[in-house]
């Protein structure tokens, strides 16, 4: 497997505790970027970055500005009410187009964009959720040679999203949250 440059995580209902667990497991100096896409309520002042930030104080979590450069050792959170895209020069682009699976940000949109730019250097992780977002995006990551992990539906508060993804993508690796955390730690060794 080629060097991992980006870990992109998608989650919906029931995923925040898992995201927190994964971020807490990250070593202080990780040599990749983390991009997180979570479904959230529209036009509610977004304090998710502060919520996550308070629980995971050692690392910087930020909502990227448009055209901001993607850097190593940063955790980026997709801003509410925008899709988050990646340009070929590894900068972020925000997009205010139609919702996908009734969601903006949509996990599919970011996964597909990451697949285009990072190809085999991407790891995608799909967590708990109650809809179908992410399944197509994981397919795109696989097609471009990236690695795909799905949270074991038995451990998910809302198993529908991981289940849909697994039906669509037989190549996905199924892991429990502690196993995903352990895997992320191996990426830095």
């Amino acid at each position: 497997m080629s060097r991992v440059s980006v870990v992109v995580i998608g989650g919906s209902a029931g995923s925040i505790p898992v995201v927190t667990e994964l971020l807490q497991a990250l070593p202080r100096h990780f040599q990749f970027s983390v991009i997180i896409v979570l479904h959230r309520l529209r036009n509610v002042i977004s304090s998710l970055d502060t919520i996550l930030g308070n629980k995971v104080q050692v690392i910087t979590i930020r909502e990227p500005n448009d055209k901001e450069e993607i850097r190593e050792q940063y955790v980026y959170l997709a801003p509410q009410n925008y899709h988050l895209l990646i340009e070929a020069d590894k900068t972020f682009s925000l997009d205010y187009s139609e919702t996908v699976h009734h969601s903006r940000p949509s996990i599919d949109v970011t996964f597909e964009s990451v697949a285009q730019v990072y190809a085999s250097q991407a790891v995608a992780v799909l967590l708990s959720g109650a809809n179908q977002d992410g399944a197509d995006g994981l397919q795109a990551i696989i097609n471009q040679g990236g690695m795909v992990i799905v949270q074991d539906p038995a451990t998910a508060e809302y198993p529908a999203m991981p289940k849909a993804a697994l039906e669509r993508n037989r190549e996905a690796v199924v892991l429990t949250p502690p196993e995903i955390a352990a895997f992320l730690r191996t990426l830095t060794q």
């Binding site: 055209k67 895209l85 990646i86 340009e87 070929a88 682009s93 997009d95 187009s97 949109v109 964009s113 285009q116």
Partner: peptide, 9 residues
């Protein structure tokens, strides 16, 4: 125009 969104459009 930024290519990522234009491509999608």
């Amino acid at each position: 125009y930024a290519r990522a969104s234009l491509h999608r459009r």
